[in-house]
Design a protein around this nucleic acid. Structure first.
Lengths: 195, 195
DNA sequence: ATTTGACCTGACTTAGCTGTCAGGTTTGAG
DNA sequence: CTCAAACCTGACAGCTAAGTCAGGTCAAAT
């Protein structure tokens, strides 16, 4: 490890190149040499800043988690209407996916590189989300119900929304698609209004 | 390719060994030699029956898709109550995951081995599911709404249910967890009954 | 018993990648 | 200007694994 970080730019250059390379080629096909080539450093320099290919990959996954949580948190902040906040959260998430499809690929691949990191990634998101839902339910802004279950369910909906539209079709779901999704989240599919 | 399939058992032996090996080690860490060793054939024999490591992996993914659709279809068959059918489908899915966690891993990893195959896998499931939901809605068994959106949403819910309980905790979700999930699917989270 | 060709063998070729290391370069303090 | 520490270099050792191929084995037909 460099002691003084005299030139922290090198570390960042390597990180950014790794992000691109992992996004492009996937974890296994990405090679450290490609990363060093893209960041214009020698092979050995890589190992000054990162212990291994796994190591830098893990750092990237954590980075992405932070980015995503920050962005979503900001998108939702200050929205008093709970369902509007949920929608804003989804919109923010799919926006991120459209802008950075490769980054989500990295997150998904983490499942096979470091399973516990992958799990943490989602558990962290779920924790924060469940807390919000739980508070909203306590204030009567939502129907009573298990906040954890709801958090994971909505994350699942978001995940597949992202797969289907952002990653496979290359664009965010249209407003009317999100309307339908929010209708499902708000009212479900049962035929009758509840008693 | 063998012409006569005099001994198709060899092919099946290799397939089963590959299933185990891919499930255990993942696509990249799985080696053809491990597969041939486990199935007691020589390295070369593998390439008589399969073009490449990718090739056998793809065949397995398709197999798993068939298995899962068959199983879920049977679980749902004959259930007239639509929400009960949805629940049975989820139960069947999580049951499969608990019994064969490795197989779901294979499906998920397909994303990085053959993206279009992975996409097909889900599109196929979604197509069938949306059809059912659409018919149910037409008969008034469900509130009107976009069947495709609902199909993908419920698939997402199932996916994360599987991750959280089956793959990470090693057991199917408890009945009361599924109750909560079904409550969400049936009625959503909005506070008031709809007008 | 012989023959045929389908089926199987496993050492080898080829390729590529991770992580190392002995030595070169740069920086800034004195 | 000098020097020492920090930083960087890139060729290479060591390893692993996919896919090949020349030849061996075996069952059944004649």
């Amino acid at each position: 490890m460099p002691q003084t970080m005299r030139i922290p730019a090198t570390r960042v250059r390597i990180l950014r190149a790794a992000e691109q390379e992992f996004a492009r080629a996937g974890f296994h096909a990405a090679s450290v040499s490609a990363i060093t080539k893209a960041s214009s450093v020698a092979q050995g320099t890589f190992y000054i800043y990162f212990r291994s290919k796994d190591d830098i990959f893990r750092e990237l996954v954590r980075d992405i988690g932070h980015q995503l949580r920050k962005r979503t948190g900001e998108a939702v902040a200050g929205l008093s209407d709970r369902l509007r906040a949920d929608r804003a959260g989804l919109e923010s998430f799919v926006g991120f996916l459209v802008e950075h499809p490769g980054l989500y690929r990295i997150v998904q691949e983490a499942q096979f590189v470091d399973a516990s990191l992958f799990r943490e990634y989602y558990v962290d998101i779920a924790r924060g989300y469940a807390k919000s839902l739980s508070e909203a339910a306590a204030q009567g802004a939502l129907r009573p119900g298990d906040a954890e279950v709801r958090a994971w369910a909505i994350m699942g909906i978001g995940h597949f929304l992202g797969l289907r539209y952002c990653l496979w079709q290359g664009h965010a779901p249209a407003a009317q698609d999100l309307d339908q999704v929010m209708d499902f989240i708000a009212h479900g599919i049962a035929p009758e209004p509840r008693a």
